[in-house]
Nucleic acid binder design. Sequence first.
DNA 1: ATCCCATACCCAGATGGACTATGTAGACAG
DNA 2: CTGTCTACATAGTCCATCTGGGTATGGGAT
Lengths: 107, 107
Amino acid sequence: MNPDLLRGNLDLILLTILEDKPLYGFAIIQEARERTDGYFQFKEGSLYPALHRLEQDGLLAAQPGELGRNGKPRKYYSVTDAGRQALTAKRAEFSSFTGAVGRLGSP
Amino acid sequence: MNPDLLRGNLDLILLTILEDKPLYGFAIIQEARERTDGYFQFKEGSLYPALHRLEQDGLLAAQPGELGRNGKPRKYYSVTDAGRQALTAKRAEFSSFTGAVGRLGSP
DNA sequence: ATCCCATACCCAGATGGACTATGTAGACAG
DNA sequence: CTGTCTACATAGTCCATCTGGGTATGGGAT
């Protein structure tokens, strides 16, 4: 996968994954990989800063969960109300973008 | 429009526009704006470096055309055979990306 | 017992493509 | 003869993502 395609879409993807149920960082990576048959393979270096940014912006909220294999509590991220609004906006943005690209292809 | 969405897709868009007929820089900007009802509004600072890069990579070829209003010949860019191959590949890449995003949304 | 791997979190620095801003120059309108 | 449009071009900035590391625990393999 060309990583540049992710630009500006990582937020949309993360919010989409967390829309159904809260997950912690590592589980998000696995979930993304499974739900797309290995297409999305997020790196931790990309994921964690993005999660922190989304939390900072109030689109995600973090709750401590059960202990992981490293003995520390996992950080579960869930989508806030503001996050759901942002998700709707980002979905619209994405579909208008793909729509515009499509219109170029078939005039 | 979120400019980050353009990342990695500008090549696809330019090749798509030039697929039908050769155009020069300024005309590409207008064509993109008209074909997408004002959605794509390329800046020259993004366009010209991209055109040069695509020419460097052999995906586009430039021919001097008629004189423009500034008295100098316009540079018409056309898609090479390698460019058409690349276009096919980039189209596939784009649709598999949107497909993956879609699969996340509706599991 | 010791090594290696998977899990799980995190950060500093590099990357690179699009952006902002600016410069050149001729044509044409007012 | 000043302002605006066309048309090309580049220098420098920005910033989201990537690379590549660091820390720590527990379990399985040797």
